[in-house]
Amino acid sequence: MLRFWGHKLLQYGLVLLITLVINFSLPRLMPGSPLELLAGEDVGRLTTEERQEVMSRHALDQPVHQQFIIYLGQLGQGDLGYSYRQNRPVSTIIWERLPWTLLLTGSALVLSSIIGVIFGTLAAWRRGRFSDVGSMSLFIFLDSMPSFWLGMILVALFGARLRWFPVFGARTPFADYTGWAAVADVLHHLALPLLTLTLVTIAGLFLIIRYSTLETLGEQYITVARAKGLPERLIIFRHVLRNAMLPGITVFMLSLGYVVSGTTVIETVFAWPGLGRLMFEAVIQRDYPVLQATFMVVTVCVIIANFVADLLYPLADPRVRTEGRQ
C-alpha cells in the first residue's frame, strides 16, 4: 500500500516538474518581447544601453537555463515574482482573481452537473420519447453554440435592452456595498455569466450519464429488480443511478481541476475579473511571471484533482478497491 502511494507521489512530482519546464519555456519560445511592458510606452526612444539595462534588471539578458534556475530558486521560497504589467506581486494578483473564478466556474460546474445528471437519467429512462429527444437536442444545441455568442446575446437582451442585469464586472463600481447588499450585488452580477457557462457545459455530463444509464438499464440485475416488482423510482435511484454515476464522477473530478483556469471567453464578454482573463492578457502582453504562475496554479489544481479522484474512486466503486488490494 505504502509503495503504491510512494509510486503515485513520484509520478505526480515528475508531472509537476515537466510542466514547470514547459510553463517556463513556452512563453519564452513565443515571438515577441516583454520589453514594451518593462520600459514604457515610448520604447522606441530607448538607447541600446538603456534597453540592456531594462532587460538585465529583470534578469532577461541571462541565458535561459540561468533564468530557469533563478525561477526555481524563487519558487522554492514561495515567490511567484512580480508582474511586468502591473508591477505587483503575482501571488497578490492571483489571490485577488482566484475567488471570482472559483465562484463563477465552481457554481457553473455544480449547477451543470446537477442538471446534467437529472436530465441525463430522465432522458435515458424515457428513451426515444419526446422528452429524451427534446432535451438531447436542446443540450447539444447549447453545447455547439459558441459561448461568447450566447453571452453576447444574453447581455444584449437581459442587460442592455431589459436592463435586468448589469452588463459588466463582478460588482457595481464605487457603490461601496457592505454585508448582504454586497452579496446581492455580486449575485446580481453573477447571474448572466453563470447562466451562460452553465448552459454551454450541461451537455458533457448529460450525454455521459444518459449513455451509462442506458447501458445499466440493459443489465440483468435491473431485469431482476423489475421482476421483483420494485417501484420504478427505486430502481432508477437505488440501482441504476448509483452505477451509472461512475463515469460521471470521473468527468466531474477532471473538470474540477480545470475550474481554476476559468473561462477566458466568458470572463471577457462579461468583464469578469477572473483568472482566465488574467492568463489571456498575460499571453497577449508577454507578461512572463504571470504566465508562469497562472499555468502552474492550473497544473497543480489538475494534479490535485486527479489525486483526489484516485482517492475517492474506490469509495464509489468497490471493484477498484479489490483490484487495488491485489
Partner: peptide
C-alpha cells in the same frame, strides 16, 4: 436567471 437576482431592485 431571475431567481438569482436579489428580491429588491438592485441599486
Amino acid at each position: 436567471a431571475s431567481a438569482c437576482s436579489p428580491t429588491e431592485d438592485p441599486p
